[in-house]
Design a protein around this nucleic acid. Structure first.
Lengths: 200, 200
DNA sequence: CGCCAGGTTGAAGCGCTTCAACGTCTGTGG
DNA sequence: CCACAGACGTTGAAGCGCTTCAACCTGGCG
């Protein structure tokens, strides 16, 4: 599908920000980009399919979640405009994914294909280096999440989120934020009420 | 320091297993390897120093941990023979580390220097690709840890550890395993007792 | 021998969960 | 335009699981 110049330029800027890119390297990847539109509640990925894309969100928002034995949905990621979403583990290994990726609102995204990037990894110095830096950054995000889950209580995690990512409370429903924090929706309500009471 | 042939060969095998390596690429890195010995309770890294090495453990074992506001030590990693240990976030960014790396027993390790690897990233196709694959694998480990912390209860995490890593209980003290699981030492005792009682 | 670290135990406490009920808002169809 | 349904958030009560604290046991080591 043809992608508008303006939209693809925002992706190029993000990539350039990860690792400065010239026209030559850029032209290696553009044939392997495609644009999709999605409606609220659409599933961009569902188990046990393997994840063949990294999606760059142009508008709207998404979540990835895991369904446990008791059929609870547990959110792993919440992502919105100009951010990426994928199951990067499945993208790397091409093993079957255990995650769903679901649209939370209508929107658009540009997809980068796993096969194309993997092919570039064989020969392109730029894209190989890009993959390294991208993986490093994704790791750092994951490690920080680990540290929060290991070292902070649910209440502390909530407070930290209000400080570091106040935008989350504009973008996402509280029930999704609760799940992202690893707590139940009523618990989040109780925590919010308790903090509110302490302020007065 | 001179490193014995046999010891360095075990490192080459591990690297080869991550990404097959020839003599040419191997010779790029060997000048930047050094061997250290450490005693129990030695600190290989302490805040706020940045982490300049990836350590390949030849013998002995180590942990990385974070000290929180209440002065509790919280274990992030437990590692032993033929495994790597580092604060990979600090290694990547060269920002000050918040982690301690401590020897749990006497042992030896080979250190790979950050500056050397970073230099190779500029020019070497092999080492750049190696860095990408290593980062991908480190990410996958981190993501799986995330999922366990988010989706499983402490008791479930303990049971999973006994199933997937029974060797941990030979290698590490229970108090370190408890901290690694994100629970207190008495809690681990209670959980173990409860499981034992259920078996009878 | 005596000390100390590691592990266990029981009691009390607290924080999050679960469950069920209710209020509010939004969108939809009569 | 209003009635109603459904999704979302909140609330309170009860329960449970991990934490905390203190006491105790054991084995290893100076």
């Amino acid at each position: 599908m043809c992608i508008s110049e303006k939209k693809i330029e925002s992706l190029r800027q993000i990539i350039h920000h990860i690792l400065p890119i010239n026209d030559y390297d850029w032209n290696d990847i553009t044939p392997h980009l495609s644009q999709i539109t999605f409606k609220k509640n659409d599933l961009l990925l569902s188990p046990p399919n393997s994840c063949h894309f990294i999606a760059f969100i142009l508008s709207g928002s998404c979540r990835s979640y895991f369904i446990d034995d008791e059929l609870n949905e547990n959110n792993l990621l919440l992502r919105s405009q100009f951010e990426f979403i994928t199951d990067y583990e499945s993208f790397i290994t091409q093993d079957g994914s255990k995650l769903h990726i679901e649209a939370l609102e209508d929107g658009e995204a540009i997809l980068l294909e796993q096969k194309a990037l993997n092919k570039l990894y064989e020969s392109s110095f730029y894209w190989n280096k890009f993959g390294r830096i991208m993986s490093e950054q994704i790791f750092i995000n994951s490690k920080r999440r680990n540290e929060e889950l290991l070292f902070l209580t649910p209440t502390e995690r909530y407070i930290k989120l209000t400080e570091n990512n106040p935008d989350f409370f504009q973008k996402y429903a509280l029930k999704h934020i609760a799940s992202y924090l690893g707590i139940s929706a009523p618990s989040l309500s109780h925590i919010r009420k308790q903090i509110f009471n302490h302020l007065n």
